[in-house]
Design a protein around this nucleic acid. Structure first.
Lengths: 195, 195
DNA sequence: ACCTGAACACCGTTCAAGT
DNA sequence: ACCTGAACACCGTTCAAGT
């Protein structure tokens, strides 16, 4: 009953998998509906090898998604160490905006892969939500964020970021959105009167 | 040079077009990636007839999208007639939430059709944005909405609605999001101190 | 003028044969 | 154990032939 999980892949297979992921990130960022066959070809592997690693488009996209999101999540803790909570939160939001813009193609690819069919494995307690939670709790204690807002609430509130057009003046629209959200978060915090 | 625009379609062609739209709405709401061929078949027309009316998936989806959105937009004005501005705004938001949930499949279809490729014809001054503008201006005058928020700003702020899961308890999450947005809109309004 | 349905192109997925 | 690439299925799109 001991199965594949612990078998650490043959080294050539390992390399293949990584090459696929590298190429896929680049290719999907450029064009969300890039053919999987093209990705396999550019990665220098056969169709079968591709499908051995990623049984379908969703699996591939999800893996990339996780990796990218973990990067963003990780910055939250770092920001909290060097800035007051509400500054850290806002700066993290700005970075999320920038991230959403450079990875717009990838975001489309995710929706394209997960949106349509029954998506059973929506990873709900995601690292990004946890990172948001971290910042929110800090803000709550500092009195700059109303109590009880969850990481998921937060992500829902800034969902509009992924709807902006990367080629255009998204900057001002993002700022306006984030200002609005920040004010919404502040309303009802115990430190609200101070300002 | 007088072209097709003014030729009012032969009556059988008219009927075909409408049957396609009816079937497509139903089918796409059910499953976002329903095959166009299946839609054509259920509508009782040949492939060619389908493509005569809608040169590609995007054209079909956009037409349905416009029609549905106009319905929602139309309710805004009606709400304003019977309620104070901030109640009208909030109720419209609740309806948007309900709408987003029943039409979740369709929303996926839209993203699926427009998200990936270069989307040249994003209808920016959309009826819904105008409807939102109507409500916002009314709230602004009543002192319940801060000045300067555009309809587009608003739509961006509630974008998260379309990210909720229609099978699940979206109700509470939607309420939390909308509460947050309402507070964000209120912050800085001249009537803010009153409460 | 409009319709039909067979034909074509393309992409995702599988699998028999190789190392 | 892992890889390759031909083969298959499916869907979007076109077009020659019909009314």
């Amino acid at each position: 009953m001991r199965d594949k999980k612990d078998a650490p892949l043959r080294s050539d297979a390992q390399r293949n998998r990584e090459r696929i992921l590298d190429v896929a990130l680049e290719e999907l960022t450029l064009c969300a509906d890039a053919p999987l066959s093209a990705i396999a070809r550019k990665a220098g592997v056969g169709q079968g090898t591709f499908y051995r690693n990623f049984p379908n488009r969703e699996a591939l996209v999800l893996e990339i998604y996780r990796h990218e999101m973990q990067q963003v999540a990780a910055t939250a803790a770092r920001l909290l160490e060097t800035r007051p909570p509400d500054r850290a939160l806002r700066e993290w939001m700005d970075r999320l905006a920038g991230f959403a813009m450079t990875k717009a193609g990838l975001a489309d690819a995710i929706r394209l892969a997960l949106g349509a069919p029954n998506s059973p494995a929506k990873p709900s307690p995601t690292p990004v939500a946890e990172a948001a939670e971290l910042l929110l709790r800090a803000g709550e204690e500092a009195g700059t964020v109303r109590p009880g807002v969850t990481g998921d609430d937060f992500l829902l509130a800034i969902a509009g970021l992924w709807q902006l057009d990367p080629d255009g003046d998204w900057q001002s629209r993002a700022t306006r959105l984030l200002d609005l959200v920040m004010d919404g978060l502040r309303a009802g915090a115990w430190g609200e009167a101070h300002r």
